[in-house]
Structures are given as C-alpha cells and as structure tokens.
Design a binder for these strands. Structure first.
Lengths: 388, 388
DNA sequence: CCTGGATCTGACAACGTTGTCCAGGCTCTA
DNA sequence: TAGAGCCTGGACAACGTTGTCAGATCCAGG
C-alpha cells in the first residue's frame, strides 16, 4: 500500500500532456521531418505561431485600454467594479469591452490573487443516484460562498482518486471534498500542510488526520437488521460490498452486532461480500435463498445491491422480507414497498461543504469525525413475517 | 429576452468576490479603522502579508531550484519529463520536490501555455438521474483526451446558465458542453468567435448557430402516442413541461402529430403544460382522469412527471394506460411494468463530448444538429386496453 | 593541446492580471 | 492666491510557469 506515495511523486506529474499535443499545429509552416523545423525563418515562426495556440487570440485588458484610450489599471478597475473611475471613463471602457468581446482571464487573476474561489469534489460515480444530490448540495454551498465547483469521478479506483485530487490541487482549488475510493490518503499530506481545506465524506480518510462526515453506517445497519429480527426473522442474509470499503465494513459490522444481540449465530452461507456486478449478486442471493438453511429475509448493503435483490425476490414463490441500505426512487410504489435504511445524501454533502468553508475562513481547526444518523423507513418489505 | 445580454456585460463580472473577503486577513497587523492601515511600516507589511493570503505559502519551482542547487528551468524540465537532464541532476531535483512537497501551479502553467486541458459542462440539475450518466459520459471522453471536467448546475435558470457558462469561459476552459436552460445564447457569441469549442446537448442553442446533439423528441413522443392509439386508445392525456423548453415543445408536437395522424381531435382538458411540481401534476392528472371526457391513457412528458403520474394511476380503480418519456429505474418491477420512450443519456453525452474535441483538433468546422433516435420499451403499462 | 560537436544547464522574457504608489488635476478653505 | 486635501489615472512590479537562446561542460579526434 505504501508504494503509492513515493510512486506518485516520481510519475511525471503531467498525464494531461496528450491534450497539449492536440493543439492545432501550425500547418502553414513546412517542417523538416528529419531534424526539426529549420525550414522557415525565425521571424515568421514567432509572429505566426504565437497567436495560434493562444486562446484563439482573445483581447486582453491591454487591448481594451488601448481602444478606450485609458490606462491598463483603469480597465481592471472597471471590470472589478472598483471605485475611483469617472462615469464617463467607465462608459468608454465598457464600450471597448463590449466591442472587443473581452472577458477577464481568471487564470491570470488566480495567479495574481492567490485564491481561486473554487473547490473540488472527487466522487465515486456521478451516475450513481446517491451521489447526485450529494454533489448538488456541495455545489449549492459552494455557490453561496461564491465558489465554483469542479468535480470528477474516481470510478472507485484509488489511483484515479489520487490522480484527480492532486490534479485539482495543482489547479489550486481552495478546498477539496473527497469521497474516498482508497484507504490511504497520505498523498494529501503536503496539500493539507500547504493549507488546502479538505473534508472527506461518506467514507473516512485513511492514515491521515482529517475532517470526515459520515453516515452512521453501523447503527443504521444494526437497526435495519434488528427490525427484521423484531418481525420474527432469524435466518437473515447479508448482501454487501467489499469489506475493504469502509461503509461496507461498517454495515457488515452492524449486521453482525444485531445478530449477536439477538443471540443468533450467523452462517457463512448467509453472507455475500464484495460481489457487485448484478449477475453475480443475483446468483449469490439465489444461493442463500435455496441453501440448506435458506434465509427468510435479506439485508441489502447498498442501493445497487438492493435493486438486484428486489428483482430476485420478485421471482420467488414464497415472500422474503427485505431491508435495504440507501433509499431508492419508487421504492414506495413496488409491491410490497421497500423498507430501507435511508441516509440523507444532501445533508451529508451540505455538512461537508459547510465544514470546508469553515476551515477556509479559519473558524475550524481541529479535524473531527461527524456521524449523521440514518432513518428507517418502513414500507412493507421489511415487515413481512418469515415464511418458513 | 434581449435584455440579458447588455445587462450581463454591465453587471460586475465578479460575483465571486465574497470569496475574496474570506481570505484570512492578517490579524497581526493592527489597523486604523478610520482611514486605512498606516500603523505599520511598509517593510513589515510587505514581507508579512504576502505569504499570508497566498496559497498557504506553497513552494515554487524557484524554491525547489534553490534547494536542489540548479536552475529554475531545470526543475521545470524534470517536472514535465522533458529530456536533457542528467539522471544525477534529476535525482537531486526530485529529492527537493519531495522534501518541499512541491506541486506545480497549473494556473501559472495555463497562463503561459494558453490551453487549460479542461472543458466545462453546464447542466440543468446534477440530482436529476437523467443527467448523471450524461455527465459521466462527458467526463469519460474528456478523460480520454486528457482533459479535466468542470461542471455546474443551472437549476433551470437561464441567468444562472449564462453566469456559469461565462465563468467557465473566464477560466479559459478549452470547450463547453451546455444543456441549455434558456433560449437565447447570443451571450456566447464572443466566446465562439474567440475559439471556445461549444456543443449544446439535449436542447438546441437559441439564436446562434452552434453544434447541437439532441434526442428525437418529436419522433419519440409521436411513436409513444401512436403506440397507445394502436392499442385502441382515443382519449389520451398529455402531461408535459413548459413549452418554452424545447424538448417539452417537441414532445407536445409529437403528441399532436400522432393524434392528428389518427384523426383524433385533441381536447384541451386532456393536456397539462408547464406544471412541474408533484402536487400540481397530481391534480392535473386527476382532473383529466375524472373530467367530462376522461382519458383512458396518459403520455407523460418526462421522467419526473412520469413518476408522479404512476402514483396517481396506482390509486385509480380502473386501469389506465401509460407511456412515459425517459426511462426510469425499476420501471420493469412495477405492476404493470412502465412502457417508456427511452433516450440514451450516455450516448447523448458521449456524442457531444466527442464533437467538442473534434472541434478542438480542427476536424470539425460547420455546426451541425444531430438527432439521436429514441427507443420504445414496452413493459405492460402502454399495452393496457382502454377501460371505458 | 585545441577544435568541433553534442549534451546539459540557466538567464531572461513573456503570459494577463492586480496591488502599490505616485503624479497631476481639481475643489475647498484660509 | 496659495496650500491642503481629495479624486482620478497610469507606470510598474509582482504572481509561477514555460519557450528561447546562449553559455558551460564534456568528450573524442586531430
């Protein structure tokens, strides 16, 4: 695991260079394929190429100033709404801006000012419905603080998470909200030290001391399983994700705790861990339903697993109880309605983002680990009695 | 509608300044609240404040160079993996980089190089499950081209869309994928002229000539309604969004076309347009089901409306047929399964992003309007016979 | 020992913006 | 009318990086 840290530093920091190659090469200049491009005299090369790969030759404040017949700084003042410019001058400058289609270059601004007014969000998968509201909540908070949100998906790949987080740091985001894919975040240490505000959400940071905002995965799962036990079930299956993922591990722990509290020994055949693709989840569920001691209820460890399990249960002849972790849309319209342990993705995101900005304005200093409660929503599937 | 353009140019371009105020002010310097801050001598002010609001004082290439005992440019070469550095020198530089926790400042890099290797995505609502896969697809393409994706939600507000798009342009994204909220995009004209690659998705650009990637909303809706007609329905309701939204208008047009093709006159009481919040959609649906000439089938104009209509239909005593535009998760598990006209959000996003990069590398020049076909997925609700 | 070439290194000037500071013009008061 | 004070505008130097170009170093061959 340690290998990642030294590795990264050694890897060329620039995986983005492929992009650069796409800059339209000036085709008007004939090139000697052999040794270089000595065919064309310097002067032409210079004057000809420069505008080509620059922002399509956008006007700068200097251009605006020239056109308006004022000084550079005056244009800056107008653009930023600073005081100290006569209405008449302002009008002239404004006219020039409109005429030239000038837009301030924020890269230069950031370079000069030192703050980017943007924060980054590294999440697992934008296409997962759980992360939509979370991302949206973070964006709303960012917006309220006048910051732009830059986000990317790690696709559950620790290396990609690291790559993305560091790329965002290189862009000098003021802060970073990370939904971890990996379990070692020491790569963020130099960044933290350099003052990049950082909050981990949904899953805790690994091997570093940082702010975390989590759901009470353990308690939620325990309550969900206890709910099934309260309705008379004893043989309860658990279908979950890889235990190396913190949330999955916690939920598994909650399941075990509830079973233990009720004095029910857990059989191995009741558990499916780390199987995620629908086809294999399906097979795992079918097995625990048809094994030597078939389960009468299933606790599904996350939204995607729940959906697959619902499909399997719909095909069974006998009713099987189900409680899922994470709410899913239309859960109330199914027959029976799906009982779930719901986490509030939006609150998770909002809380994290707010902590981030409190770090930024200095209100917050010591890293904390916050756990938000989950909520059991009964809709029918979790209240089915065992069909033995 | 025209007002927006001149307005924007006049609005201080900088709604982000609230952020700047949050920069920790140097508290060690006593300040005369009256007139300014003349209390402290120049020298201290300078040397003391500068590091404070700069990126938490991050090391620069200069620092690395000093520590490694090499020139600035040599560090640059190492960081970018350029040739022409002895292994020994490279090692020394690398050591200094690790020791100082240096990370290249991409703002400066962008300023110098002129390309940002990032593209922007302005979408309507990240929390809408339709946009998750679309956004993800755009990101994958961007990634394949070595670019970072920056995105934001317009929340269906034209002003916010414009604000966001222009903010992204100010950051000098190389290109922009826009899911329009408004219908006037002339504000993008200077940007287009300046060479910002731009593709509109899901809805067409308004009042400018630009690349668009759309679903065949008209054809899809027409087919969906024709499907209901083919199953014997004549009194068919339409629940849709505001016709000022292009997709909504097209789907309405498709509905009308199908009805006209079948020679069925449409009654006003069968249509609900522009009502979006669940409570009012519910009332609208109930009305068309209980009016003087009650509908026997409903065509729902988008995923959110469909969900609400499903709820309403579930409460009806008689079966009512339903076809929805946009697929929804779990549609197949409901009783009956929900028949939908599905658009492929991922393909929409991928196509748009690919066109964007083709614009960037110069392969693409003339703006086009691409319409992707939709697909009718029959699951039961659309095949119910009319219950008169 | 010198020359020529190849290789490696560093000084310097941009990139577009903003902060600082000073100059010039104005108004107001003594 | 002079002097003080304010307002407006502009010159200039940074910010951290990269492209250019020339200088330094090294080695082989004469």
């Amino acid at each position: 695991m340690d290998r990642r840290i030294p590795m990264d530093r050694r890897i060329p920091m620039d995986r983005r260079i492929p992009m650069d190659r796409r800059i339209p090469v000036d085709r008007r200049i004939p090139v000697d394929d052999r040794t270089g491009r000595r065919i064309v005299p310097e002067t032409i090369r210079r004057s000809d190429r420069a505008p080509e790969n620059r922002y399509g030759n956008r006007p700068t404040m200097k251009d605006v100033a020239a056109r308006a017949g004022v000084g550079l700084k005056t244009v800056s003042r107008v653009v930023n709404g600073e005081p100290g410019v006569t209405p008449e001058t302002e009008r002239r400058v404004q006219e020039a801006i409109d005429a030239l289609g000038f837009r301030r270059n924020d890269s230069a601004r950031v370079l000069r000012k030192g703050r980017t007014a943007s924060i980054g969000l590294v999440l697992e998968d934008l296409a997962d419905p759980f992360y939509g509201p979370l991302s949206r909540a973070v964006e709303e908070v960012a917006r309220a603080h006048g910051a732009l949100l830059i986000n990317g998906s790690s696709a559950e790949d620790p290396d990609r998470e690291q790559e993305l987080a560091l790329a965002l740091c290189a862009r000098r985001v003021d802060g970073l909200v990370i939904i971890p894919a990996g379990d070692d975040h020491r790569y963020m240490e130099p960044e933290l030290k350099a003052g990049v505000a950082t909050v981990f959400v949904d899953r805790p940071a690994g091997k570093i001391d940082a702010d975390c905002v989590l759901s009470d995965n353990f308690g939620g799962a325990r309550d969900g399983v206890a709910h099934l036990i309260a309705h008379g079930h004893r043989r309860i299956g658990f279908v979950g994700d890889m235990p190396r993922i913190h949330t999955a591990a916690e939920r598994l722990r909650g399941y075990r705790a509830a079973m233990e509290d009720a004095g029910i020994p857990v059989e191995d055949s009741w558990m499916s861990l780390g199987v995620t693709d629908p086809e294999r989840v399906r097979r795992a569920a079918e097995e625990m339903l048809s094994g030597p001691s078939p389960v009468t209820a299933i606790f599904a460890g996350n939204n995607r697993v729940t959906v697959t399990v619902i499909r399997v249960l719909a095909e069974q002849s006998r009713p099987v109880a189900l409680v899922g972790f994470d709410d899913i849309e239309l859960a109330d319209l199914l027959q029976p309605g799906v009982t779930v342990v719901a986490q509030d993705a939006a609150t998770l995101g909002r809380t994290a983002a707010e902590r981030l900005f409190r770090q930024l304005d200095g209100t917050l200093v010591t890293p904390e680990r916050i756990e938000l409660p989950t909520r059991l929503i009964t809709r029918g599937s979790g209240e089915l009695p065992p069909a033995d």
